[in-house]
Design a protein around this nucleic acid. Structure first.
Lengths: 192, 192
DNA sequence: TAGAACATGTAACGGGTTACATGATTTG
DNA sequence: CAAATCATGTAACCCGTTACATGTTCTA
């Protein structure tokens, strides 16, 4: 409760504070919003959300409200929470961390049968196509919205679109780069 | 030392095993190679490398050799190590995790002064340009190499190039997406 | 009214990050 | 020979993940 600075919040906690600027929300609400708004470049799990909320309430960055139906526990951001958020966003962004297991599989692809690698790639591609389609649909919805959608969210959506498009282009370029068997529907079919 | 399967290795440890297939290496060597070959999509620190090596030696996946100069400690992969690696790479790749603090800054850009956001973006872009240039140079070197470079490494390099190119394109599209001040060399100059 | 989906958490583990310590070798 | 860099590691912390437990509301 003192006026001391307190230790800086981590990016995940700061994001929750960011969302709580708009309105009090429960862990569940925050999970949904975060998934939608930053989920494409910032993974987080329900466990994390609940733990960060408990920790932040403990140090007074947020305040728990009265429980509603289904034990829904709403949290409100405090002045100290706003201060902590402001301190966080004023910092230059940390360096990014990418961890893409698919690329490890490709990097060590020499240890796989060419057919196994081809199957693996064939299986992974649709998820990226799906994501790109989702992003594109959301962009369309956002640009047509009245009143206009949040431009900052739109900018991150734009990133997702370009990223997934790059991934798909890369998938399609792979046959020219790797020693893969000629794509043969029979042989690549997992049911054969 | 028993013949039991043992628990599966994690992706970071498996990658080290992958590199050790070629030749015995020290922690330092592995750090350099990993940085070069998978560093662009799989971050890892020296601490991790040394810890994983110690753990893998403990369970017999690798064997420590005799120390050389500067206490360099080489490790050799064992048969059990090869088995563990094979089991790892046979699995379908896990889902990717991206954590891009820059995008959090953009997503919450409404909490920053437009000028502050513009400065931040201006400061972040060059690092990506630099990376793209590095990748492109390495691709050139690799395609001209005799004998031909590892196609699998080339494929992951190609991913890096396309990813960074997409990031740069996104940077350049941002002025049309966000309420930023008109780029004015005087005002954006950090020295003013 | 039974089962599915909703909603909130806790506990434990694994692993990534940071900070620190130490000695060896090279370079000015 | 002093400083910089190379090289190896340890320890502690933080945080992300996974597994599990529990009660609630909706829907077939």
């Amino acid at each position: 409760m003192a006026d001391e600075p307190g230790k800086p919040v981590n990016a995940t906690a700061a994001s929750l504070l960011g969302f709580l600027h708009h309105a009090p929300m429960t862990g569940w609400d925050l999970m949904q919003v975060a998934q939608q708004v930053i989920g494409n470049f910032w993974s987080l799990t329900p466990s994390q959300v609940y733990r960060e909320l408990a920790a932040m309430a403990q140090v007074g960055l947020i305040r728990a409200g009265t429980r509603g139906r289904r034990d829904r526990q709403p949290y409100t951001i405090t002045e100290r929470g706003r201060t902590a958020f402001a301190a966080w966003i004023a910092q230059p962004p940390a360096k990014e961390t990418l961890r893409i297991p698919l690329l490890l599989s490709v990097a060590f692809g020499g240890h796989l049968e060419p057919t196994a690698l081809a199957v693996l790639l064939r299986d992974q591609r649709p998820a990226h196509q799906q994501r790109l389609d989702d992003y594109a649909a959301r962009r369309t919805a956002a640009t047509e919205a009245r009143p206009a959608a949040d431009p900052y969210a739109l900018a991150t959506l734009e990133f997702g679109i370009r990223h997934e498009q790059a991934v798909l282009d890369w998938f399609d370029a792979l046959p020219d780069l790797l020693p893969l068997p000629a794509p043969d529907a029979e042989r690549l079919n997992s049911k054969d």
